[in-house]
């Protein structure tokens, strides 16, 4: 039995002027049904070159986890603790792997012209991630609290200041570099990673140049 209250509620949920409805519609329409976490892929995806995107993501997860442990211990913890030294090394080497896998992912996508088929935003967000990741690692090297960090800051200050960014991005200020490294830049990286993944799921994995697609 339908009451007038139920009918009114149903009418409200489809009201296009309601911002919650509009937001829900936008979220539901981000990726085609069933494509958010698909368990099947086209046959051409069965190649090792398609693995490097997810390897990059996996490395990023280790980077964030080890960085979180370092944040709990404190920025100078790793200087005085064997466990801290280990976690610092895990953080460094996961970053090395992150960049290595990301560059091989970039080579693969470049040579298969991965911007084809309305995938321009996927490509652009990937390029943005590459650039912002370099900036994030730069602030990480500046946050080491050692002679290496001092040397990098001394070498980098003139270049950064010549762009005018030094007013709010002072590489000689370790506290500011640390907050950029552990708060602001990771937020931007994770946000763009989410947009990148949504774009991949929305348009699908790019086929090889010589793939013969049905339909």
């Amino acid at each position: 039995m339908t009451t007038s209250t139920d009918a009114k509620s149903a009418a409200e949920t489809t009201d296009p002027k309601n911002w919650t409805n509009r937001l829900r519609g936008r979220i539901e329409g981000l990726v085609p049904p069933g494509q958010a976490l698909p368990d099947r892929q086209p046959v051409y995806v069965a190649s090792w070159i398609y693995v490097f995107g997810v390897l990059t993501l996996s490395s990023l997860a280790v980077v964030i986890l080890s960085g979180s442990v370092l944040a709990i211990g404190g920025v100078q913890w790793w200087h005085v603790s064997s466990l801290g030294h280990f976690v610092n090394s895990v953080h460094l080497w996961s970053v090395e792997l992150f960049f290595g896998f990301m560059v091989i992912h970039l080579w693969g996508k470049f040579w298969m012209a991965a911007w084809r088929g309305k995938r321009a935003m996927t490509w652009i967000t990937g390029v943005l991630l590459f650039g912002i990741s370099i900036g994030t690692s730069f602030t990480g090297f500046l946050s080491q609290t050692n002679f290496s960090a001092q040397w990098i800051a001394g070498e980098g200050k003139d270049g950064i200041n010549s762009t005018g960014a030094g007013a709010f991005f002072n590489v000689l200020n370790p506290g500011q570099m640390l907050t950029w490294h552990v708060v602001l830049l990771p937020l931007v990286v994770v946000l763009i990673v989410l947009i990148h993944i949504i774009q991949v799921r929305r348009h699908g994995v790019v086929p090889p140049l010589d793939a013969h697609l049905e339909g």
Binding site: A46, S47, W48, I49, V51, F52, G100, I104, W107, G108
Partner: peptide, 10 residues
């Protein structure tokens, strides 16, 4: 690694 990813069968 890049070349191996292209030639090694998955």
């Amino acid at each position: 690694l890049f070349v191996l990813a292209l030639v090694v069968p998955f």
